[in-house]
């Protein structure tokens, strides 16, 4: 599942943008060091392959519904984790730009969810470990289990990002309980496909998977990178959340004073301070979880407590909003008229 701009808060989106950009930069350095120039067109064309493959539907066994390929793991296996990650990033970028799958701000999240877990966790820590076991079907189980692992982790981070963003009301537990089993099923199907495709390629052209430049880059530093990225992610997300959480009481006070129309704070007789709180509240990137606190019935009776907003204010807000939207269309229309006029007079 793709994260979407409409569901995301700037703090979460920005954080994962930073993490993903860092990973892209690092992977570029790795790819440059490990691969020859000839692999650049290969990466691009294989990316196009994933794209084309995603447009072919197949029947999911036993259900009759149809599915399509995700791609992260298969890319890591066929190109190695660094190049695979870059190609997955590119696929997601094109999807965001041309199909609005996800969106531009959510792109960082999607790269992390679909690229990071598959290429840097599932591939080196699950796939490679199992595939090297001296079992008859080790290769199949490697593809299957790493695919499941990659998708489970990806789905879990979708849940975390959604809940941290707080735009959707879905509670953490319900969301996890829905997402993980769905993605278990998807993971198993994808595991079958991945195992099948890789087996096909190995049978037809075994040398493709043994290109030393591609595979050598897979081994070292991967675990370290994973741990480091996760730590950075944890610190940044934690920091952002606590910072905005600490900023939140001011926000609540501000909105209270705004809606009740009375200043109940002592400080605001200093204009700079009130202006700052104002600004702080306006820039509160993370939604205030406190708003979800249901006011007790008693408080409701008092009817001056947020979020039971004074109806008059809201109506004028809505009227104003609709008017500006109409104005926006009006501006568009006028501009169009003006343009037509100028081209007509020029002709």
């Amino acid at each position: 599942m793709h994260m979407a701009d409409a569901l995301i808060s700037p703090a979460v989106g920005g954080t994962f943008w930073l993490i993903s950009t860092g990973l892209v930069g690092y992977s570029c350095r790795k790819v440059k060091a490990a691969l020859s120039d000839s692999k650049v067109p290969l990466m691009g064309v294989v990316g196009a392959f994933v794209f084309a493959a995603q447009m072919i539907n197949f029947t999911v066994p036993g259900t009759g519904s149809s599915g399509h390929l995700g791609g992260g793991l298969i890319l890591a296996i066929l190109l190695g984790p660094w190049a695979g990650f870059l190609v997955m990033t590119s696929v997601l970028t094109v999807q965001a730009l041309f199909f609005a799958d996800g969106g531009l701000l959510a792109l960082g999240c999607n790269i992390f969810n679909l690229g990071f877990w598959t290429c840097f966790v599932a591939y080196p820590l699950v796939y490679k470990k199992i595939a090297s076991l001296p079992l008859k079907s080790s290769f199949f189980w490697a593809a299957m289990l790493s695919s499941v692992a990659g998708l489970q982790l990806g789905a879990f981070s979708v849940v975390l990002q959604t809940v941290l963003s707080g735009v959707s009301e879905l509670p953490f537990v319900t969301f996890v309980a829905a997402m993980q089993p769905i993605h278990l099923a998807i993971g198993i199907v994808e595991g079958f496909v991945t195992a099948g495709v890789v087996a096909f390629v190995v049978r037809a052209q075994p040398q493709l998977l043994e290109t030393p430049g591609l595979m050598a880059a897979a081994k070292p530093a991967s675990t370290k990178l994973v741990v480091m990225t996760l730590m950075i992610a944890a610190v940044v997300v934690g920091g952002a959340v606590s910072w905005f959480a600490s900023a939140y009481p001011d926000g609540l006070e501000w909105s209270m004073s705004k809606t009740s129309g009375t200043e109940e704070l002592d400080a605001p007789d200093h204009p700079v301070y009130s202006h700052l709180t104002d600004l702080q509240a306006q820039t509160a990137f993370l939604p205030d979880y406190g708003f979800k606190e249901r006011p007790s019935p008693q408080a409701d009776k008092n009817s001056q407590r947020w979020p039971a907003v004074n109806a008059g204010t809201t109506v004028s807000g809505l009227v104003g909003g609709l008017l500006t939207l109409t104005l926006a269309f009006g501006i568009g229309f006028l501009l169009k008229l003006a343009k037509k006029h100028s081209t007509a007079s020029a002709a």
């Binding site: 197949f58 029947t59 999911v60 149809s66 496909v193 099948g196 096909f200 390629v201 037809a204 052209q205």
Partner: peptide
């Protein structure tokens, strides 16, 4: 209407090659 997983992997494999 849609391919079975087996056909799909074969098509994908040759597309990849």
């Amino acid at each position: 209407k849609a391919m079975t997983v087996n056909t799909f992997t074969l098509v994908l494999g040759s597309l990849f090659l």
